[in-house]
Nucleic acid binder design. Structure first.
Length: 478
RNA sequence: CGGGGCGUAGCGCAGCUUGGUUAGCGCGCGGCGUUUGGGACGCCGAGGUCGCCGGUUCGAAUCCGGCCGCCCCGACCA
């Protein structure tokens, strides 16, 4: 009896996504509403993302810190836009030690409030700046609807919080981190992203500018995979963080914050997955190469596993993450299907015939093509093969993104295109929130990015026909 | 919070309309045997307070009331 087939990606994308996440052993629902248990395979992927990011944070002069999960509600309330934006989603602790608390504590939905109320004590002089800190933590947001990895009530992320002496320095920092995010998404996760500015309505509560990376999923919806915010002096004002500048004057510090969450793991699934399951970019794949031994008798088994062991040793010497699937309770066909579901980039089959010939059969997850290599060749070339697969995934995803990116000058085309969920639609926009709202009302799509630098589109607003201010990129999104 | 659906073994479900003795099926799990180059098969076996509380009844998974939880669609969102 064959195991249940996955839903077809093209027929029911949400069901396909959830089945892949569950069956690949990435995550499952927790006991509390909207919570998530991240399982080893999903967590390993998140760890790879963490590593890639953290390396770059350190290289750009940042240090890691940790602030408390709980803080008084009134601290959150000090920045007006911020509290207004987050209040509906904040979980509040009202009891402790068996008694009602005199002052309710909030579970952080993000840490600007607690961090900036602390920065007040850490910043007195321009010599204390810049302050370049990051924390890896969990936050809680009481979302109405949740979905594994993409939107859970508790999620893992990193949040960077920096303070600077000048506007320009803070602004550059926000853009620098946006670039770090782009690099990790594209180079490590093979996930092409658009970068740019958010419109006012899509900005982070309390930010002057929000810079996202936006990826396109295989069902044509966009995913915000990371954001960097230029916060101006809003938080410094709210939490009274002033420093003495070189002129001896008191000045409010300039701020940025930036974050990437474990949502990006879901992004990888939806960017690269196919009808057989995951396809993982080699650079972050927990297992880059799996060896499936094939045998009948105990004798063959011993020979084949011995050969597999040598292959593993050689590949590990070359810093490749290898797994030998020597489970006795499953037959090879089962293992092939399972490792394809889990998205392992390369599979090596070793049977009695191969042992005799000193060779292995290599199959890649992208094409499914089989080839025969000598054991030595495999060890010498596996790294290159993986690099090739990494590039191919990025090329694939880029081609898909490009094929699903359209430009238009007519509202009808924009509206119909967005209603069909066919990716990014680019058109001139007058900058008016009413036009933005109209598109959203009629198509559920929002402006995902505006150019980093505003530039005359040379065309009238695609919605109202008034002079265009800049080119906007619309899409439906997760 | 509004609309819809669902809670029965680890997972997926049937049974409920029309109450009736030991509550079924598939997958998975354990044992034995045969198998093993694309998701194996046979035999034996373990596993259940039918979401919770109360009510009706000789008798409740099934009918009634209340509660809790989950999923999908909307508003919200990394």
């Amino acid at each position: 009896m064959a195991t249940d087939q996955l839903p077809k990606q093209s027929e029911n994308f949400p069901a396909w996504y959830l089945e892949v996440v569950k069956r690949a052993g990435m995550a499952e629902h927790g006991l509390a509403r909207g919570s998530q248990i991240i399982k080893p395979y999903g967590f390993a992927l998140w760890e790879a993302v963490q590593q890639a990011l953290d390396l770059r944070f350190k290289a750009t002069g940042h240090e890691n810190v940790y602030f408390p999960l709980l803080f008084p509600e009134k601290v959150l309330a000090q920045e007006a836009d911020h509290v207004e934006g987050f209040a509906p989603q904040v979980a509040v602790v009202t009891r402790g030690g068996g008694e009602e608390l005199q002052e309710p504590l909030v579970i952080r939905p993000t840490s600007e409030a607690i961090i900036w109320s602390t920065y007040k004590n850490w910043i007195q002089s321009y010599r204390d700046l810049p302050l370049l800190l990051n924390q890896w933590c969990n936050v809680v947001r009481w979302e109405m609807r949740t979905r594994l990895f993409l939107r859970t009530s508790e999620f893992l992320w990193q949040e960077g919080h920096t303070a600077h002496a000048t506007r320009d320095e803070a602004f550059e920092e926000a853009l620098r981190m946006l670039e770090v995010y782009r690099e990790v998404a594209e180079d490590e996760l093979a996930m092409p992203v658009l970068t740019g500015r958010k419109s006012a309505s899509e900005r982070f509560p309390g930010a002057l500018e929000t810079f996202p990376i936006e990826a396109l999923m295989r069902d044509g919806k966009a995913l915000q995979a990371g954001t960097s915010h230029f916060l101006g002096q809003n938080f410094a004002r709210a939490y009274d963080v002033q420093f003495l500048n070189t002129q001896g004057e008191q000045e409010f510090a300039w701020a940025t914050s930036w974050g990437v969450s474990a949502r990006i793991v879901g992004g990888v699934v939806m960017t690269h997955g196919d009808d057989r399951g995951l396809r993982l970019p080699p650079r972050v794949a927990p297992v880059q190469l799996v060896v499936v031994p094939i045998y009948r008798s105990d004798d063959e088994r011993a020979q084949v596993l011995e050969s597999a062991g040598r292959v593993r040793a050689g590949l590990e010497q070359a810093s490749i993450r290898v797994k030998v699937d020597d489970r006795d309770q499953h037959r090879p066909g089962f293992k092939f299907a399972e490792w394809e579901l889990k998205g392992v980039p390369l599979r090596v089959e070793i049977g009695p015939r191969d042992v005799a010939a000193g060779q292995v059969v290599v199959v890649d997850r992208l094409t499914g093509d089989k080839s025969t290599l000598s054991t030595d060749d495999l060890i010498a070339r596996a790294g290159d093969l993986l690099d090739g697969l990494q590039r191919a995934l990025f090329t694939d995803a880029s081609a898909f993104r490009d094929a699903n990116t359209h430009e238009t000058n007519t509202f009808a085309e924009l509206r119909d295109g967005l209603a069909e969920l066919s990716g990014f639609w680019i058109g001139a926009w007058c900058g008016d929130a009413e036009c933005e709202q109209k598109v959203s009302d009629e198509t559920k799509a929002t402006i995902r990015v505006l150019p980093l630098v505003q530039e005359d589109p040379g065309a009238p607003c695609v919605v109202c026909g008034k002079p265009g201010l800049e080119r906007a990129t619309w899409a439906q999104s997760y």
